[in-house]
Design a binder for these strands. Sequence first.
DNA 1: CAGTATCCCACAGGATACTG
DNA 2: CAGTATCCTGTGGGATACTG
Lengths: 116, 116
Amino acid sequence: MQTNLEVKKTLVFRDKEYKCGIEVTLAVIGGKWKAAILYHLAQQTMRFSELQRYFTNTTRKMLTQQLRELERDGLVHREVYPQVPPKVEYWLTDEGRSIKPILDLMCEWGVGHAEK
Amino acid sequence: MQTNLEVKKTLVFRDKEYKCGIEVTLAVIGGKWKAAILYHLAQQTMRFSELQRYFTNTTRKMLTQQLRELERDGLVHREVYPQVPPKVEYWLTDEGRSIKPILDLMCEWGVGHAEK
DNA sequence: CAGTATCCCACAGGATACTG
DNA sequence: CAGTATCCTGTGGGATACTG
């Protein structure tokens, strides 16, 4: 007996091996705030301070870190406007927008599950 | 200016507050192996040793732990057959099956993302 | 405003051994 | 077969302070 997955080849993503796409997806959006960040940016472009205003329980460091990782993974674009005071905006790339259906489903399911 | 999320009420799930459904969903399936376990059980009922055979990089302890948490969260049913040697089967509850569309999307997206 | 730089710790997850 | 029981470690994430 074997499952569908057992016949699939392993995936490689950033030098690590994954046995199925789900693991890759979790590696990308599994961070504590990442999915929520993406969900927000899916609604609109935001600058750093706006994200900070929403994620009041998060430190600047964590926000920065998670945003950089999302940028590295190609989901988020970071635009720095060379001015004083600094202005940095974040928005989703095409790749980032491609994950929106998942986020929408996750949001919906989570709301339903919490109600029980 | 505010996003859709900022006008929503917070969700409560297992005595913790969450600002959106996504966070709840991640709290449930965000464990290192949980999503993959659910994905497998969505294909078929499996006994512990079968899961172990697939998750070769996971310890018994971790498998047990994650399965118990999924059981506690109402996604997985654990059936113990009182016999020697013991036999324990796991399968998804209705609630567990309700998350399958998300898993399918995550799997698909992950495969696509890894290819780049 | 939008970040680094340090220092720190809890806890998720792992290794190994034992058991009904 | 399907687990516990112990002990241990890495690192994800936090607190605080400094900066271009």
